[in-house]
Design a protein around this nucleic acid. Sequence first.
DNA 1: TAGTGGTCTAGACCACCAT
DNA 2: TGGTGGTCTAGACCACTAT
Lengths: 258, 258
Amino acid sequence: MSQPEREQLPSRRIADALRQSIEARTFRPGDRLPSERELAATYQTARNTAREAIGLLQAEGLVDVQHGRGAFVRRQAPMIRLGADRYSNRVRRETGLSPFRAEAQRQGKTARVEVPEIGRTIPPRDVADRLGVADDEPSVVQRVNLYFADDEPVQLGTTYIPWTIAEGSVLATEAKTGTGSIYSRFEELGHQITRAREEITARMPRPAETVALAIPPGVPVIEVLHTGIDQDGRAFEVTRFVMRADLNGLDYNLPVED
Amino acid sequence: MSQPEREQLPSRRIADALRQSIEARTFRPGDRLPSERELAATYQTARNTAREAIGLLQAEGLVDVQHGRGAFVRRQAPMIRLGADRYSNRVRRETGLSPFRAEAQRQGKTARVEVPEIGRTIPPRDVADRLGVADDEPSVVQRVNLYFADDEPVQLGTTYIPWTIAEGSVLATEAKTGTGSIYSRFEELGHQITRAREEITARMPRPAETVALAIPPGVPVIEVLHTGIDQDGRAFEVTRFVMRADLNGLDYNLPVED
DNA sequence: TAGTGGTCTAGACCACCAT
DNA sequence: TGGTGGTCTAGACCACTAT
């Protein structure tokens, strides 16, 4: 219909044919596509040409290629839905769970968090701007978090806390922040989260992220720059989340001012 | 540092070397990389191997390849920042501008909107769910919008309105909805936007989107499923936005419930 | 062991761009 | 016109998966 009927290029013709078969559910999620050698024979091309066609579908995120096994129509995994209410102080008090754990539990997934790195550092520019701290000296504590759902790495979160706030507390040194997540510790230090600003973009993952989150080809990441704002309107914490876009979604419910 | 020092594969070695040069700003945004034939000679490989290396960088969104000209380090264009307050009724009344136009104007860009398609149709499942209408009969009016900033296509928006609301109004037939955007028309029909739900995901663009938005390789799209909710808590409109992720970002400012 | 994808070679011809 | 990318060929050898 909307596809151009006259696709001259062999690689595109093969890709289009496969894509249509996938859309028509002739090949269903989980099904194996014909092998590169089979496609080459079918379409009377060199193997490289058939391979190029599969590469196009892979870049679109439609198929999943496995060495030695074949190319499979990608199944869409259920998403982790991150609601804006995940920072709710009430939910945290009642359940004692961090935002990520609360969402995972609600969706029947097991949650695990690793904290591979904690230390005082110089913050990136955008973070320094939002915290109102210097970007040319070690003005923050950086905490790296790796989030797992059902033992699969799904998010990377780097939290920046002004040194003036974190100094002397467990925030500056300990991986485990205790009951009720890191926000309970902030509360004890006099900062209750009252507002959050979340700036959202998407992009292709960097090589390091591809490794850390085991991101397959053709899958972008969502980057969320989250700023926690306390009862005095002061930014007390910034976290940069990098999430596999095929496993995570955001869900905001916003009041619209009159 | 974090990059593996021993990269056996020629194509990866070339890609890594180029990536490092880009990160080190030896090649700056807008600069041309060595040609495929030059790289092949330098690294003593076949041209296809050098080409493969450039393809990797292209898939990462790092470079922009132009036929007949060369491969260039991608410049990051300034983003359109879509704030949650873009639906504000006050802003609309005062400026008479639609959400997109209001944001574009605020950022000094020219805005243009095309409406290539309006008609009564059967809604997709997710839309029907959110509107509470049937998904097996033409229960909605569909309006397709193409948004341009500085004459570049940046967003695609498909709005679905229950037929029971749109019937008989300009919403069902006219491309131009008049002063104050489509929300002024909803207001006249008794639906003032009071809350909005926005569900966000990201993915690689589909072929049709790649064409419509002129999306270069290595650039994902952000998909926002927006639901407008009126003073009675009723969903009166759903819009699916598909935005080039390199040109658009979202910016939410959320109250956190105690 | 047979079948699959991963990578590479050394060409070829075409289309686009700049001069 | 010469240089650039776009695509393709017809092989080759390797690494991984399954039986």
